[in-house]
């Protein structure tokens, strides 16, 4: 099985590569359009700031390639947000537009610090991605912006209001949390993805 991890200087891709390595899977870190098209699975991690990430994706022509991919695709953290239409981050940034959501910032509420940082549980799980998991299972989040709940939502978390912890449209799956850093629960989700 050919696994490609999208290389766009998008943050700590090394963690995703190590997580795959722990599963005994050898992945290729690449921005090569042909390698991405050919792969059996594509992972799209991300960390950092949306505007500079979009700039890098455009510089490498990936903003045109990624929406045309047809194999199972997994966005992680910023890699999920970038699949949306638009984000408030960076004074307003247009993104890949693969899913119909707009990304907004968490409101500053007393007792709800921003970023939303730490382990939160997943609710209303609705995807083979979460096979074997329940609302008792926790995953690790670090983010200041979020995608609201919509018909594309396949898992929710609450902070304090519900938001999209995971989304899906056709072959495009994405999780807001760091599945590569979420202990055995995160490992199970990665395994489930590799089985899609």
């Amino acid at each position: 099985m050919e696994i490609a991890v999208v290389d766009y200087k998008g943050g700590n891709v090394q963690s995703v590569l190590f997580a795959l390595e722990r599963l005994g899977v050898q992945a290729t870190l690449t921005a090569d359009h042909e390698v991405l098209r050919r792969a059996d699975k594509v992972l799209f991690p991300g960390e950092g700031e949306a505007a500079s990430a979009m700039q890098e994706l455009r510089a490498q022509g990936l903003h045109e390639v990624l929406p045309t991919l047809t194999q199972p695709f997994l966005g992680i953290c910023l890699g999920m947000q970038l699949l949306g239409q638009h984000t408030q981050e960076g004074g307003g940034t247009d993104m890949l537009g693969i899913l119909p959501f707009d990304v907004v910032r968490f409101p500053a509420l007393p007792e709800y610090k921003v970023p939303h940082m730490g382990w939160n549980n997943l609710q209303t799980l609705n995807s083979p991605l979460f096979e074997g998991l329940s609302a008792e299972d926790y995953v690790y989040f670090v983010h200041s912006y979020y995608a609201p709940v919509g018909e594309y939502t396949i898992a929710e978390a609450a902070y304090p209001a519900p938001f999209s912890a995971a989304v899906q449209h056709e072959n495009f799956y994405a999780v807001q949390f760091h599945t590569e850093k979420s202990g055995p629960v995160g490992t199970r989700i990665l395994e489930n993805f590799l089985k899609l």
Partner: peptide, 8 residues
């Protein structure tokens, strides 16, 4: 923060 994001 500008280069890597506040989260890290």
């Amino acid at each position: 923060a500008a280069r890597f994001g506040s989260q890290c």
